[in-house]
Design a protein around this nucleic acid. Sequence first.
DNA 1: AGAGTCAGCTGCTCTAACCAACTGAGCTAG
DNA 2: CTAGCTCAGTTGGTTAGAGCAGCTGACTCT
Lengths: 247, 247
Amino acid sequence: MCLAGYPLAMAARDLQERIKKLIIDRRLASGAPLPTEPELMAHLGASRNSVREALKGLQAMGIVEIRHGFGTYVGTMSLAPMVEGLAFRTVAGHHRGEDTLLQLLQLREAVETGLVSRLAGRIPDADLVELDALVDRMEEQAARGGDGIAETDRAFHATLYRGLDNALLGEVMEAFWDTFHRVHTDLGGAPQDPLVTCRQHREIVDAVRSGDAIRAEKAISEHFGNIRVRVSTTGTQHPHRCHNERV
Amino acid sequence: MCLAGYPLAMAARDLQERIKKLIIDRRLASGAPLPTEPELMAHLGASRNSVREALKGLQAMGIVEIRHGFGTYVGTMSLAPMVEGLAFRTVAGHHRGEDTLLQLLQLREAVETGLVSRLAGRIPDADLVELDALVDRMEEQAARGGDGIAETDRAFHATLYRGLDNALLGEVMEAFWDTFHRVHTDLGGAPQDPLVTCRQHREIVDAVRSGDAIRAEKAISEHFGNIRVRVSTTGTQHPHRCHNERV
DNA sequence: AGAGTCAGCTGCTCTAACCAACTGAGCTAG
DNA sequence: CTAGCTCAGTTGGTTAGAGCAGCTGACTCT
């Protein structure tokens, strides 16, 4: 087909850009509906197939969200795609004998160490209360079977940095946590000792509350040191098969 | 077609996972060739169309690299896709009146402040030499027309954190720099004063060399403070059209 | 009035053909 | 003999049309 004025070739690469431009120009917010596939075909002057391939790429970047039988919508633009990509990169590297998981952990440690010292003394009281509650909850969960420990751990790290008052920063930290956790479990890594985790989380909260930046950094550092032992003593020796057996 | 044992529906979502699994299982490194499209069709029991859509998604995540008339290869798995997604998210939010660019800058500041204090005093001498050279070069470029300033700036921030000896961390920081720079120029933001930048870079190097963590943090903070002024006084008022006019 | 059904949207998958970019073998001209 | 060209074969890119599958809402039957 190819409407007048558009180059015949190079459709695919441009299509994504043009769909992105369409979202920008129409000021579409997350969740807003995009034109249907036939409408996009007409608007962009490309075949169904090319439009769909472009959408698939945008979907992988979290820019659009496709719901079968319902429509296409502007995506949440969360960092989930980054988690996906980073996780795969880490797993692939690990299976080829590289210490990618350790590197990922070190990345988290380096960044969180800096953030926590920035946070010391200026964290809102409300967050401290919530952090205390999260440690309490994890102690309960540890006393029981241990169900939900991971989710509580995630919430702890997410809540910790809420005080820095930057939603993007919070998302990035969560994304790193998610990536690490996902890769660690996929690779069959040994879980932490919940009681040790609780004690270290408690110390982090107390250190931040006291306003002692050095102590807070040390607390984070010890926490990660503990995790690091678990990572480097397992996983590297027995590259397990991925779950989701198929192919 | 659909080979025995595979569900008839749900092809697309699984296809990506199965291709990823194929890369993992065969221990394919970056740059290694993937099966051709016909081979993948046979291997995965799906049509050409579905295979291509899956590949487009993986391409958007940097997991595979597609070269027309040549073949499909395992991608470099750089963070470029993350830059792409984050940049779009920032631009889109900006055009809807949100202060996303400022948030991105604050993210960089928070993270780099922590990293630079961690770096103070333990940075390798070789890196210091290189950083000095980079500041010198930027001074030259400022004296001339100003060509290549951006690239030198990028190199400075990249070299700074090399001493932390974590390739992943370096890539992440570069990705944040790239995202910020790209969005800032796309939105027609005012460029920095090169001489101010040079002076602040010099102070950062000297602070890190002296081993004074507090001074280093302050130097970074001032540097970002300078950038922040440029961001918040421009750009927010006149949401420019994107470049690449089309559609 | 309530529940089932059906028509219509939506996106999903397949097939088949042709276009376009790259490679390399073989031919031709110098 | 070599330099360059041509052409066939490979690979991904694009289009077309048909039918499948999930969701919605109005219509119909009980």
